[in-house]
Design a protein around this nucleic acid. Structure first.
Lengths: 257, 257
DNA sequence: GAGTGGTCTAGACCACGAA
DNA sequence: TCGTGGTCTAGACCACTCT
C-alpha cells in the first residue's frame, strides 16, 4: 500500500530491490525474463557487486525471482496450482480407480508418478501418536513414505501412519496395496471412513525437504496433518502431507450449519 | 533422513549452518537461547565474519532463528497456533456474540483487537471479481480491510469484498456493522450462508505484509480465499485472509461421502 | 562504552551453462 | 571460452541494545 518512500536513507541494496520489484510488478520485467546480471546492476547503481547481490537475495527470499547458476536470475513464472479438493477422500472419487492425485494431475494433462520411498515399522512422532491413539514410545506404527511427481517434478511428500497391529501381515505392508489402495484394505479391516480432519499449517522447508522437492529459495511448504475417522469415530489412519506451496492449492467446500 | 555427509567439500558457511542446525535440533541450543555472535563463530571456524553471517542467514531463511539488531541471534520459540476451525462460519458460533477470531483468542487467554483499516468502494482484483460474480473493470465492490491482533500482536489481514449495489447505504459501509457483524446484515439482505468455499495457498509475504504483520524472515503467510454462497448458490461475499503462518493453523473437519 | 547485528567495499577464485 | 551466479576475505562504518 503506502510505498513508504524508498527515500534517500534506505540502503542501496533495498533501493535496488525496490526498483526491481516495481519493474516486475509493473510488467517491465515479465515472468521468465532475465534480470540484469549482478555485475551490471552493481555498475549501474555504482555499488559493489555484493550490494547488488544482496538486492537479488531479498527478491529471491520473497519468491519473486530464481537464480540459475551459470545462466542468470529470472523472474519466477506463476505456476498453475494442483487443486486438491475436499472431495479427494470421497469414495465416489475412489471408484474412478484413480487416486485423487492422479485425478488432479490428469485434469492438468500431467503425468503422475508415485514413488514408494519406505515401508517400515517405527516409533511414531508425538503428533502422529496423539492423533492415531497409539503409544509414542513403542514401534507401534507402520510408516509408508511416498513421493509424488507430476511430469517428473516432485510436488509432495506423504507419510502415512497405520497401526502396526492391524497392518502387520496384510497387503498394507506391501508396495502395491491392491484395489482402491490402502483405504480399500482398511475397509476390509472394518474401517469405513466417515469423517476426515485436516490440520493445515505452512512453514519453510527443512533442507531435506528442499532437496527432495527441488525447492528454490522463497518457496514455503504447506503441511497437512490428516486424520481419518471410522464409523465409530475412531482414528485409523494419519498422514502428513508436505506440499510445495507454489504448485499446490487446497480447496475445502463445506455446508454451513 | 540421509544427513548427506556435511563433508569436506561443503562450503564453510553451510558447515557452520549444519552444525548450528544440529545443535538446535538436538536441544543443545534451546528455544529462546542466544547463538554465538557472528564474530565469535567466525573466529571459532577460522573464517571471515561474512561467512559466519551467511550461515546464520541460511538458518533464518529456514525459520529457525531470528536476529535482533543490537542484541544477538536467538533460536526461535515455537508459537502456539491459533486454530481456526471449519466451524468458524457457523451460525451457532455466531450466536455466542463473539466472532470466530475473538472466540479462538479467548480460548488461549489472549486479548483480541480488530482494527478497521479501510472501507472503500473499489475495482476488485481479478480473482475476487471472478468469485463474487462482478465486473473487474468497474468500482463494483465495497472493500473492507481489517487487521486482527492477539495481545496487540498482528496475526492476520482480512480483506472482505461485497457487492457495492447491495452494501451501499446500509450498515455494511459503517465501521460498526451491528449485531452479528456483516453476516447479520447480509442475512437481512436475504443471503443465508449455506456453503463456504475456502481456497488455500501459502507464499512468502510481500514487504507490505511483512511490515503490517511484523514478520521476521523465514515466516510464510497462509492465504485463504473465502467465498460464501447463499441458499440459491449465489456468492455474496468473498474475503482474502492473510495469516502469519507461525501463529495460525487451519482446521477442517468434513464428513466423507 | 562495549558488544551486537546491518550494510558496504573491492577485490578474489570457483562452478556452472551456453555458445 | 566467456559470462553467469556461488562463495569467500579482510577489512570498514553505522545503528541498535544493554548495562
Amino acid at each position: 500500500m503506502t510505498p513508504s518512500a524508498p527515500s534517500s536513507d534506505t540502503p542501496p541494496s533495498r533501493r535496488i530491490a525496490e526498483d526491481l520489484r516495481a519493474a516486475i510488478k509493473a510488467g517491465a520485467l515479465a515472468p521468465g525474463e532475465k534480470l540484469p546480471s549482478e555485475r551490471t546492476l552493481a555498475e549501474r547503481y555504482g555499488t559493489a557487486r555484493n550490494t547488488a547481490r544482496e538486492a537479488i537475495r531479498l527478491l529471491s527470499e520473497q519468491g519473486l525471482v530464481t537464480a540459475r547458476h551459470g545462466s542468470g536470475v529470472f523472474v519466477r513464472e506463476p505456476q498453475r496450482l494442483l487443486r486438491l479438493g475436499s472431495d479427494r477422500y470421497s469414495r465416489a472419487n475412489r471408484e474412478t480407480g484413480l487416486t485423487p492425485f492422479r485425478l488432479e494431475a490428469k485434469r492438468q494433462g500431467k503425468e503422475a508418478r508415485i514413488k514408494v520411498v519406505a515401508i517400515t515399522r517405527e516409533r511414531p512422532p508425538q503428533d502422529i501418536a496423539e492423533r492415531l491413539g497409539v503409544r509414542a514410545d513403542e514401534e507401534s506404527v507402520l510408516h509408508r513414505e511416498n513421493h509424488y511427481f507430476a511430469d517428473e517434478e516432485p510436488v509432495q511428500i506423504v507419510s502415512t501412519y497405520l497401526r502396526w497391529d492391524e497392518a502387520q501381515g496384510t497387503a498394507l505392508i506391501q508396495p502395491k496395496t491392491g484395489k482402491d489402495g490402502i483405504y480399500g484394505r482398511l475397509e476390509e479391516l472394518g474401517h469405513i471412513m466417515t469423517l476426515v480432519r485436516d490440520e493445515i499449517t505452512a512453514r519453510m522447508p527443512t533442507p531435506a525437504e528442499a532437496a527432495v522437492l527441488d525447492l528454490p529459495s522463497g518457496v514455503p511448504v504447506i503441511e497437512v496433518l490428516h486424520t481419518s475417522l471410522d464409523q465409530e469415530d475412531e482414528p485409523f489412519e494419519v498422514s502428513r502431507y508436505v506440499h510445495r506451496a507454489d504448485r499446490t492449492g487446497l480447496l475445502y467446500e463445506l455446508p454451513v450449519e
